[in-house]
């Protein structure tokens, strides 16, 4: 049962990886990284139950936190082009990132 779940998670991981390799825009790749991180959390949880030692669940939770912080940092870079600016500054996206067709830079406050 857990083995089937583990292979399903691995297949989903492969699909997310393919999107990260191919993804034409920045946002495809950010979403792929986030998805791979989520699949890693799931895989660690399933591996814990598969080997009969579900003590690693809290480590999976910490992975989820790291994944969230990393994605927030990446999104902040994509929107502001800098890490030092706060949300009050007018966004200046970095020059030559290949962005989505309708670059929605004014999403934040």
């Amino acid at each position: 049962m857990f083995a089937v779940t583990a292979f399903a998670v691995l297949i989903a991981l492969g699909i997310a990886l393919a999107r990260a390799f191919l993804g034409p825009t920045v946002f495809d790749r950010i979403l792929a990284v986030n998805s791979v991180g989520t699949k890693t959390v799931l895989l660690i949880a399933v591996l814990g139950f598969l080997t009969g030692r579900p003590d690693f669940l809290d480590i999976a939770i910490v992975y989820a936190l790291i994944n969230f912080i990393g994605v927030v940092a990446i999104l902040k870079y994509v929107q502001y082009g800098d890490f030092a600016l706060s949300g009050n500054v007018e966004p200046v996206p970095p020059g030559n990132v290949e962005r989505a067709p309708q670059g929605d830079g004014e999403g934040g406050q």
Binding site: L17, A20, F21, G23, V26, R29, I30, A32, V33, V36, G37, T40, L43, I44, L47, F56, I59, Y63, G70, I74, V97, E98
Partner: peptide, 23 residues
């Protein structure tokens, strides 16, 4: 050749390596 994609993929590589270490 897009360095942004390379940074994203190295993050993915680290996550895969972490899964490997757990395994």
């Amino acid at each position: 050749r897009s360095l942004f994609a390379v940074v994203m993929l190295s993050g993915i590589y680290s996550l895969l390596a972490a899964s490997m270490f757990v395994s």
